[in-house]
């Protein structure tokens, strides 16, 4: 089976800072793959490199077996979408929810806009009552639902999730995580999920990669993580820290 997403020794260099130092990973279709690590370890950079938002210096990125060129084409943007971390920064402040959802449809020349917008809003549990609101009239959780609806409206097969719940309260996080699981099942999506919270990744993903300083520390199964069976001391330390404070 061809991998839905494959990175081979990808390097990202900002000016003279090596943000990614040759990272390789492979995600199968329908799989949920997690990325964890401390801030600055290069998790977001991986997602941005895939999305074409970060300068890839070397290495290759394959989607469904097809190597990506430097310039992404429209078909790429219909198969790969992203949800950002900060729900307050990822929605245009001057556009209503309706306008936000219409834009991708207009860009890809998809007709039947009315029905799709209504359906997208219902899918993320917002309903049409939210359709003509501006972002500042929404709570953080509602904004993140809108961002998910915007990503799903072009019917992608791969969803890149950059800490989608770390700015949300725990109860809202649970709702959004449940929503993400539901749409993944319903649409057979492939997830690449970034989080600094080991428990979230273990809950959502099948496999994960631990990162540090722009490099892979190790890849392991979520079941191994849950059983605290890490091979690398750094992973052990992360697991230890996530259990809370010990006197």
């Amino acid at each position: 089976m061809t991998n839905a997403l494959e990175l081979d020794r990808v390097e990202v260099v900002y000016d003279d800072f090596h943000a990614l130092k040759g990272v390789s990973l492979a995600v199968q279709p329908g799989e949920a793959f997690g990325l964890v690590g401390e801030s600055g370890s290069g998790k977001s950079t991986i997602l941005r490199a895939i999305a074409g938002l970060a300068p890839v210096a070397s290495g290759t990125i394959n989607i469904d077996g097809q190597s990506l060129s430097k310039r992404r084409d429209k078909a790429f943007y219909r198969s790969v979408q992203m949800v950002f971390q900060d729900p307050y920064g990822s929605l245009h402040p001057r556009q209503t929810v309706d306008r936000l959802l219409q834009e991708p449809l207009a860009i890809h020349g998809i007709d039947d806009q009315e029905r799709r917008i209504v359906r997208a809003l219902e899918e993320v549990g917002l309903g049409t009552g939210f359709r003509f609101r501006y972002p500042h009239q929404l709570s953080g959780g509602q904004r993140q639902r809108v961002a998910i609806a915007r990503a799903l409206i072009v019917e992608p097969s791969i969803l890149l999730l950059d800490e989608p719940t770390s700015a949300l309260d725990a109860s809202v996080q649970a709702e959004v995580l449940n929503l993400l699981e539901t749409v993944r099942k319903a649409r057979k999506l492939t997830f690449l999920l970034v989080s600094h919270d080991l428990a979230v990744v273990a809950h959502m993903c099948d496999r994960l990669m631990v990162m540090q300083h722009g490099e892979e520390v190790e890849q392991l199964l979520s079941t191994e993580l849950s059983a605290r069976k890490a091979r690398q001391p750094y992973t052990q330390k992360l697991i230890e820290a996530s259990t809370g404070f010990r006197r």
Binding site: G52, L53, R72, Y77, Q85, D86, G89, L91, V154
Partner: peptide, 20 residues
């Protein structure tokens, strides 16, 4: 900003991003 990145990710052309 993320919201401009999101529009780029939809495949919008630079002209569209600037104007709209």
């Amino acid at each position: 900003s993320d919201y401009i990145a999101a529009v780029r990710l939809m495949g919008a052309s630079p002209a569209r991003i600037v104007v709209r």
